[in-house]
Amino acid sequence: MPQQIKKLLIVFTIVFGIFFIIKYALKPKSFGEFGHYRGLAIIENENKQVKYVGIEACNECHDDIVSYKKEGPHVNLQCEVCHGPGYLHIQDPETNKLIIPSKRENCGICHQKNAARSENNITQVDLKEHNVENKCIDCHKSHNPYEFKD
């Protein structure tokens, strides 16, 4: 074997050796467990906080409102659609109050008249025309909106 090839081989061995040592040192332990990624990443993704707790959790304390809501058109609505995520509230209901939306715009998010909304899907009003002076909840009971306040 010519001398220059021998020297080159030595250089190559050293370079590749260093490369593999660095690769071994930097590669996370769980990498490649299931595929070309860190296996631990799956567990990290699983462990995030669940924030929307669902109507069953609301029902544990507010069963009166939940059952009243069932009588009206909002029957399929999750409480958290309007009131926001409840994970903190169920841990400590006194300090973590939920949102109680009261503005006309809050109802308008679903009920504002729009050409893209089908009348079969949702009851709509034109917020610019319908009883402009008042809030929606001055007349309608929000949990069962076809019933009116006295």
């Binding site: 799956i42 993704n45 699983e46 462990n47 995030k48 906080q49 669940v50 924030k51 929307y52 669902g54 399929n76 609505l77 999750q78 958290e80 659609v81 679903c110 899907n121 949702i122």
Partner: peptide
């Protein structure tokens, strides 16, 4: 993924009113 791995629907699906 943190919800579906616990058997709960994703937040957007659970919250969709229609």
């Amino acid at each position: 993924y943190h919800r579906i791995s616990k058997g709960i629907a994703p937040a957007c699906m659970e919250i969709c009113p229609n």
